[in-house]
Design a protein around this nucleic acid. Sequence first.
RNA 1: GGAGCUGUAGCUCAGUUUGGUUAGAGCGCCUGCCUGUCACGCAGGAGGUCGCGGGUUCGAACCCCGUCAGCUCCGCCA
Length: 618
Amino acid sequence: MQPPYTKDDRNIMKKAAESTQILKNRFRSDYCGLLSPEREHGSVRLAGWVHRKRDHGGLIFIDLRDHTGLSQLVIQPEQQELFAIAEQLHIESVICVEGVVVRRAPGAINPRLASGEIEVVLSQISVESNAQTLPFPVADEVQTSEELRLKYRFIDLRREKIHENIIFRSRLTAAMRRYLEAKDFIEIQTPILTSSSPEGARDFLVPSRLHPGKFYALPQAPQQFKQLLMVSGFPRYFQIAPCFRDEDARADRSPGEFYQLDMEMAFIEQDDLFSILEGMIEHLTTTMSHKRITRFPFPRISYKEVMNRFGTDKPDLRIPLEISDVTPLFVGSAFKVFANSTVEGSCVKALVLKGRGNESRLFYDKAEKRAKELGSGGLAYIQFKEEGPKGPVVKFLSEADLSTLKSHLALENGDVVFFGAGKWAATCKIMGGMRTYFGDLFSLDKDELSFCWIVDFPMFEYNEEAKKIDFSHNPFSMPQGEMEALETMSPLDILAYQYDIVCNGIELSSGAIRNHKPEIMYKAFGIAGYSREEVDLRFGHMIEAFKLGAPPHGGIAPGLDRMVMILCDEQNIREVIAFPMNQQAQDLMMGSPSAVTPVQLKELSLQIDLPKKAEPKP
RNA sequence: GGAGCUGUAGCUCAGUUUGGUUAGAGCGCCUGCCUGUCACGCAGGAGGUCGCGGGUUCGAACCCCGUCAGCUCCGCCA
């Protein structure tokens, strides 16, 4: 078993290097970060970048950096030629050197350096690349603007933290492959140029030269291919799959493209999938990190319950707060705003903060501002103080209301309770947003991984705009209760074998047990308003496949970038991607997207029709 | 599509609240000195369209309007 990866000792580069046999050639015989007193008196060749230089006039020290770490080089003035070269060296130049490893004098040992007990006295130096002044420093890891970092990504990637992140990502994917192959998973590549799918996110389109006017689409996920592989008789499939969705970026969402650990298995049920994935995550966590999984097996929470208790389908379970339903307490209340939310489809929710009843007015005002940003009209709250309840809505509540509330929520003096009222889904969402907002009041353990499964998603939902019933997730998910449920239950009550896996407030993946029975599929699409003919037209190839011998199957596709993010303690997904795009989906280094030549357009039978710019205001 | 924050030297930032002399600091860069540093030290120097455009004013980094860029959030992401 590999030793646990800890961020504190920052030695992942060293470990990565140790697992590789060094290629000894004219450039190097050793790695900088791995040199130790064992090599004393040894003649070595090193190659790397000038990390720092300390020129004492009569003596020059160079910290040489390669991907394993640093070695201190010493150039003595007797070596006149060497000395002249070293004097002129710029930071971040690439040099190859020869020298002898010597033990440092006891007072000169640097305990902060892995190779700090030794140094290399140079006998030769050759400058492979003399670097000009860099746009930002590599050695001093000071915050630099995102724009510069992205424009000069190749320099940013020299910096220790992000360099380690990229190496960690490589090791993680390698560990995934080893684990899954040992579990009889087969890695299969699926097409990148495929066809546009009618559901889901916006597609990226690629014009076809051979078929003017027609387009390929980049896959949003290999969803249909992996299901077809099950029909082909491969028992377990996986792929580290690029996925393309033309949607706007977030801190945990790379614009345009991202990677999933895409998996699918035949002849399994939901519980089988859960235990397989839990096994893999447990293995990866214990072998690749020093983080702890809070509960194992992962807790399972139904969609309805998670919305009621946490106000989101991706809760951070480390936050010690839960939302309470207080709807029944306000039936017939004199406070009309709350009383009016006690009808079917609406609710009154409460969120208690213990011991925060005596904060400054600013505390509550800022909370209300956040609630309004989340779409709430306001944020009612009651501070329970020694001298009695206080807050903007107290005057609307009777003594009886207040005392029922106090006992129902086990409130004590010094506490504060926040309220949300209105339509169920919107109220849950706002209160969930407030729960996350107040989560900042607690110091959450970054080394705790609080995984959970969200299960029992509804199969259908009511689309208010279109005034019709829609699939709430993947139309290919199997309804719980199969055909009987579709035929006998009210559509909005039908649940699906559809699940999400969530960790610390980040959705890692959705997955489902698929619907492999054509008749159930026609019926499900029928409820969503699609005729048999329309289904055949849009998903004919899938239905056809399922008519020709399809096993029960299901899968999941955890987001790779997000997994790396969590394990590397990064708040932004760009920190775990070698060459990310900016928020506007541009690559500032490559300059993409970019214009193409008229010749290229003509070959593709395309014409550009730019939108007219809005007239500038006078 | 909408909201917020940010933009001053190569880099990180102060200065903007209350408009007023030649816009500062640290790091980096250049020159000189320095034989045990490890964020080496010391002395000197260069380096600025205060994101851009317009306005108010005797006078704008500072106030107003517009605009551009980066980030964060909402919408969006089956």
